[in-house]
Amino acid sequence: MSDSPGENAQPPVVVWAVSPGDPPFRMVQVHGNIVGTARNMADVIVLARRAGVKNVDLEDPAVVRWVKGGMYTWDF
């Protein structure tokens, strides 16, 4: 067991499961607040940067948590 702060911390960006829409979308949460909807990976980056995340590495689980589908899941 480690005493490192942040070892079990939530990543700053959470991208929620695909929601129905035309086109389908995913809600984006940054630091616990919903900041908007994304229809693709570029939208996630824009929303995260606007909310203050400087280095948005979509492949880094310490930065982004993808819920019910990875970064390539944008449809049902």
Rank of each mutant, 00 (worst) to 15 (best):
M1Q: 12
S2Y: 12
S2F: 11
D3M: 13
S4F: 14
S4T: 15
S4A: 15
P5D: 13
G6N: 12
G6P: 10
E7D: 12
E7G: 00
N8S: 11
N8Q: 08
A9Q: 07
P11Q: 09
P12F: 09
P12S: 11
P12M: 05
V14P: 00
V14Q: 06
V14M: 05
V14W: 01
V15D: 00
W16V: 00
W16R: 13
W16T: 01
W16C: 10
W16D: 12
A17F: 05
V18C: 08
V18E: 02
V18K: 04
V18Y: 04
V18D: 00
S19V: 11
S19Y: 11
S19E: 15
S19A: 15
S19L: 13
G21E: 04
G21W: 05
D22W: 03
D22L: 08
D22G: 00
D22Y: 05
P23V: 07
P23C: 05
P23R: 04
P24G: 09
P24Y: 03
F25P: 00
R26V: 10
M27E: 13
M27H: 11
M27P: 00
V28R: 00
V30Q: 01
V30M: 01
H31I: 00
N33R: 14
N33W: 06
I34A: 11
V35Y: 08
G36W: 02
T37A: 13
T37C: 10
T37L: 10
A38V: 12
R39Q: 14
R39G: 15
N40Q: 06
N40F: 04
N40V: 04
N40T: 03
N40W: 08
N40P: 03
M41R: 14
M41K: 14
M41T: 14
A42D: 15
A42M: 13
A42F: 13
D43C: 08
V44G: 05
V44R: 07
I45H: 07
I45V: 15
L47V: 10
L47N: 02
L47G: 02
A48N: 06
A48G: 09
A48W: 05
A48H: 04
R49A: 03
R50Y: 10
A51L: 03
A51H: 05
A51C: 04
A51M: 07
A51Q: 03
A51V: 07
G52S: 06
G52H: 03
G52Y: 01
V53G: 06
V53K: 05
V53N: 04
K54N: 12
K54P: 01
K54M: 11
K54R: 15
N55C: 08
N55I: 08
V56A: 10
D57T: 07
L58S: 02
E59M: 06
D60C: 08
D60W: 02
D60G: 05
A62D: 10
A62N: 12
V64M: 07
V64E: 07
R65F: 02
W66V: 07
W66I: 06
V67H: 05
K68D: 15
K68C: 13
G69S: 08
G69M: 07
G70R: 00
G70S: 05
G70W: 01
G70H: 02
G70M: 06
M71R: 14
Y72K: 14
Y72S: 13
Y72D: 14
Y72A: 12
T73Y: 10
T73L: 09
W74T: 05
W74A: 07
W74I: 05
W74K: 03
W74V: 02
D75L: 08
D75T: 15
F76M: 11
F76Q: 10
F76T: 03
